[in-house]
Design a protein around this nucleic acid. Sequence first.
DNA 1: GGCAAATTACTCGGATACACATTGTCCGAGTGTCTCTGG
DNA 2: CCAGAGACACTCGGACAATGTGTATCCGAGTAATTTGCC
Lengths: 166, 166
Amino acid sequence: MKLGEGVEQAIHSVAMLSSLSEGGVLSAAAIAEFHGVSTSYLLKHLQALSGAGILDTVPGPKGGYRLARKPADITLLDIVLSVEGPAPAFRCSEIRQRGPNPLPSRYFAKPCGISAAMLKAEQVYRAELAKTTIADLGRTLAEVDDGGIAARGCAFLEIHERKTAR
Amino acid sequence: MKLGEGVEQAIHSVAMLSSLSEGGVLSAAAIAEFHGVSTSYLLKHLQALSGAGILDTVPGPKGGYRLARKPADITLLDIVLSVEGPAPAFRCSEIRQRGPNPLPSRYFAKPCGISAAMLKAEQVYRAELAKTTIADLGRTLAEVDDGGIAARGCAFLEIHERKTAR
DNA sequence: GGCAAATTACTCGGATACACATTGTCCGAGTGTCTCTGG
DNA sequence: CCAGAGACACTCGGACAATGTGTATCCGAGTAATTTGCC
């Protein structure tokens, strides 16, 4: 039960991209520098997000990444599934079939109760993640912020944001 | 987001131990043989369960493992936490502090909203796991069983179960 | 001076090494049981 | 025949390798801005 380090980076990156102006674009190098992480490694996850349809890419000079959807339409679940993969955490390897005297195959038609319970819990977990959107995160952040956090973000965007003709 | 293979083995082992008679004991080798998995590796997880107070160990010949509590008092969450460790899956590495111009430390007093949302989801996940007990699993298994599964288990226990003087 | 084409520099994208964690295995310590010997 | 001590065999417990996944990195393909030459 362990989530990769890239999940946190991906979420922060999406949250950051959500606060730039319409048509604005941010390069992966800028995001990595802002978060103090490896550029090449962050690229890997940004590509995954791009492939999942969460981010749009603008190639060429003055290019970069941009949200493909509205912040209210991007949930934490979308990001986690894109980065970690859609496979469930608990994989029932049908341990019942193994061993010296396995059960008849007709019992395997329905999944065992253990697998059902574990997957049910995971389903609840994902449903909870799907409740919060990027827009929600920005809203809750604004509540506790006295202006310092927003100021830092704006200052950084002022320097690194690129506005494309779209 | 991936759970270890040992989790499934551990749950199945506990479920198996829940169906033996009062004072009965099962050796790790027998459990491993029944499930067709590595004995030494299963031992590792059984030890973890023992350390967590879920199983009792009986040393010496005719020794083995036994449930330390009633099946109704053992939840899936207990087993998962024992095997996978109590650490949460999402670890906020406080990415905000890194980078060229970190935020003042006073903003770190409260966890960031991202971390809060992720941990909240995980809390829900664990709460769901805590709902189902080993007794529940046995009950649901009995509902779909026409006698074949129980027969196999009883036959195996008849051979390998050891009854200690306690 | 305006236009067009080649160049250039910057971006993302995928294929490639390194590190850590999980998986799998082994040998040693501990304990109850069995046996052998003495009374 | 009974009791006790010794040896034994079986158990769990922790320390030691091997594989798989995640982490980090590099170089190549593509594209838009730029520059330069021509009209």
